[in-house]
């Protein structure tokens, strides 16, 4: 269990302010944020590698705020593995044993299990300088787990990997978490990773934790326009919600919200916006007529920007649909969406 109670971290020109977070034992928790959002600072503070200016950090109910890293009972895995280059795979993994007063004989059954889980048996005496990215990361995981930490901290463990190794390590992480029942705290900027791995997430921006919740919930219902933008929502409009509808940029769509009329934001995922030659009929969708402003080839699909008055809608259209429609820039089209998919903030 990890508890952050009003943690403040100060570095020149930046601060993480008043971070409060409670991560339950055995959870897989993701701290999401862009580069420079303060997420890694928070991770290093939990590890004891970054001093805190205020607040308390509790691990398993124990106040560790003033404890050095070696006495916190944490494991850490960095993006670049940070394996000890002068030690072979086996010695890397066994590195921490002696500092936990464990003999190799005592630890062997556990190490065998970890190495089995991570498929490292055959690497044993290899030099770590000749491992693949995925192997390096699995060795780093084994090394951290060998000393039985109460919490495993993962600093962008998948970011530096080639896509095929990324899948390998991602699966290893998921298996490990299921098998070992440890608390995992992963820092990442990639929401897709969080969707796959984490039960709950926190979004951190500019040193502030903006939203905490179940992964799906945060993905479906971002609390602020900034969080929505971070999560890949592209169509975010300042809106006024009143009388069962939302008005934005001179447009209107039906939307029932509880409570009195208020100002806020309306957001739509690009994948929830449909572009077609003729408006869809009879399915309760809201449709507007606009003009194609830009077609951007993204490889498997196109990003289509449609101007409806002053409102800019972004939609993803498959290459095939685009060809079927014969879409060109300047064409008049219909943009439509299911109001249920519209997200009010």
């Amino acid at each position: 269990m990890i508890e952050l109670d009003g943690v403040r971290i100060e570095v020149p020109g930046f601060a993480v302010a008043d971070a409060c977070l409670r991560i339950e034992r055995g959870e897989f928790f993701c701290l999401l944020g862009h580069t420079g959002s303060g997420k890694s600072l928070l991770l290093e503070a939990i590890a004891g590698l970054m001093p805190t200016a205020a607040g308390r950090i509790l691990l398993e109910g124990r106040d560790v705020t003033r404890l050095p890293p070696e006495r916190r009972g944490i494991g850490i895995v960095y993006q670049d593995s940070a394996l000890f280059p002068h030690l072979n795979v086996q010695r890397n993994i066994r590195y921490g044993l002696r500092h936990h007063g464990q003999s190799l004989a005592q630890a062997r059954p556990r190490l065998d299990r970890i190495m089995d889980l991570l498929d490292l048996k055959r690497l044993g005496r290899r030099s770590v300088t000749h491992l693949s990215g995925g192997e390096r990361q699995r060795v780093a995981l084994a090394r951290a787990l060998a000393v039985q930490p109460s919490v495993l901290l993962l600093d962008e463990p998948l970011t530096a990997l080639d896509p095929n190794f990324r899948e390998e390590v991602r699966r290893a992480l998921k298996d490990l978490h299921r098998e070992m029942g440890l608390t995992f705290l992963m820092v990442t900027h990639d929401f897709a990773e969080a969707l796959y791995l984490a039960g709950r997430v926190a979004v951190i921006q500019g040193g502030c934790i903006r939203q905490v919740g179940a992964t799906e919930e945060v993905f479906r219902h971002p609390a602020t326009p900034e969080v929505a933008a971070f999560l890949g929502m592209r169509n975010i409009f300042a809106a006024r919600f009143a009388n069962g509808s939302a008005r934005f940029q001179g447009l209107e769509c039906p939307l029932t919200l509880d409570g009195p009329a208020r100002d806020g934001f309306l957001a739509l995922r690009p994948e929830d916006v449909a572009v077609s030659r003729t408006p869809p009929a009879g399915n309760g969708w809201t449709a507007y007529t606009g003009r194609v402003d830009q077609l951007l080839n993204l490889g498997f699909q196109f990003e289509v920007t449609v101007l409806v008055g002053k409102a800019v809608f972004t939609s993803f259209v498959t290459q095939r649909d685009l060809l079927d429609m014969g879409l060109r820039e300047g064409d008049e089209v219909s943009v439509a969406f299911d109001p249920v998919r519209a997200h009010a903030m």
Partner: peptide
Amino acid sequence: VPRRLENVSRSLGAGRGATFVRVTTPL
């Protein structure tokens, strides 16, 4: 010597002195 190696060593239970002897000096 990357500072991260020393950080990892400390997270594995080695104090500053042990880290200096087991990681920093060999590198």
